[in-house]
């Protein structure tokens, strides 16, 4: 009994348990949710935004936050589309898009480290800058360009579920290894827990911040590219919904928003659960506005719940 209690106290376990329960409930109660096709599409949605969540999770564990995720997603899909339209081969186009996203990450890190701008302010500002720049450069209508290769990479289904999902799993596996089995992960948790001690113990905090925010940019970039592949074209608000979703997924996955605490593995459950909740609200034909309200309230409730647990110690 006490072991069961102990198991439930772990926010990650709680996230996975809730995910399974919610999924079972939808399968039983909502018509059509048991179909394989529906579940594949749920996982596809989860995977597409899931990359951004992976990066966001690393940032949050390091004690920061990346509010430029949504604009980075847009930036990457627009850049990639433009490059493909210009006749560049798909891999090159993807490379350029990802590079652009990492540059945004480097810009974020520079301000945060050297100008001491709080992460939340810096990343919101960076987001605004990207948004404005894209609007000016594209005149509001981004170029349409998407090759067969990109479409296949995103929604091809050689192995039951889409390729995007498998790529998501692969990136997750690499990041999981980095966060749990490598020096990098130790340092990220250390910075999120206590920057002073980390510095005094030889962590190169500047270098780490660059790596962390560039990683977040890179991950959000993959989201953007595969979203382009998924629908075959892009638009300037393609990334917008995912800002809140990415943070919600991290929090729902059991990672402390205050940094330094929570297992990285929670992100998968967090992401899928977020998508499931969105789907349920969708089916109940609740409007976009109310979906947002609900999502916002959910994040708030979760933050309060986790905050309480922290205080109880």
């Amino acid at each position: 009994m006490s072991r069961c209690k102990e198991w439930l106290k772990d926010t990650t376990n709680l996230a996975y348990l809730t995910m399974i329960l919610v999924w079972l409930t939808t399968v039983i109660t909502i018509k059509g949710f048991a179909r394989l096709g529906h579940n594949v599409s749920t996982l596809q949605t989860a995977a597409l935004m899931g990359f951004a969540v992976l990066g966001q999770a690393v940032v949050v564990i390091s004690g920061g936050i990346d509010m430029s995720v949504s604009e980075i997603i847009t930036l990457s899909s627009v850049t990639c589309a433009a490059c493909i339209k210009a006749g560049l081969p798909t891999p090159v186009a993807m490379g350029i898009a990802l590079l652009a996203c990492m540059l945004v990450g480097a810009f974020n890190a520079t301000s945060i480290v050297f100008l001491k701008v709080p992460p939340i302010i810096q990343t919101v500002a960076a987001g605004c800058i990207i948004e404005g720049t894209l609007l000016v450069l594209t005149n509001g209508t981004p170029p349409a360009g998407c090759g067969k290769l990109l479409s296949w990479m995103s929604k091809g289904k050689p192995l039951v579920v889409t390729n995007a999902f498998w790529i998501w799993m692969a990136v997750y596996a690499i990041l999981w290894w980095m966060m749990n089995r490598s020096k990098f992960g130790r340092y990220v948790y250390a910075i999120g827990t206590n920057v002073n001690t980390a510095k005094n113990s030889g962590v190169h905090v500047t270098k780490m911040n660059y790596m962390i925010y560039m990683l977040s940019g890179f991950c959000a970039g993959i989201s953007g590219i595969l979203m382009l592949g998924n629908i075959g074209s892009t638009y300037l608000t393609i990334g917008d919904p995912y800002q809140l979703y990415s943070i919600a997924s991290v929090v729902i996955g059991g990672i402390a928003i205050t940094g330094g605490k929570g297992k990285f593995s929670g992100v998968i459950a967090g992401t899928i659960l977020t998508v499931l909740i969105r789907d349920i609200l969708n089916v109940m034909s609740i409007s976009e506005a109310f979906r947002n309200i609900f999502q916002g309230l959910l994040v708030l409730v979760l933050l309060l719940a986790y905050g309480r647990e922290r205080r109880a110690r």
Binding site: R181, S182, Y189, T193, N194, N196, T197, A198, N200, G260
Partner: peptide, 28 residues
């Protein structure tokens, strides 16, 4: 300044010498 108080003893103990415990890939 000296400890990561919310982390296990092990995390703190090996923190300063973690590079030495890694293989060529950076795996601990």
């Amino acid at each position: 300044e000296g400890l990561f108080v919310s982390h296990p003893i092990a995390f703190n103990l090996t923190f300063a010498c973690i590079s030495r415990l890694c293989d060529f890939l950076g795996t601990i």
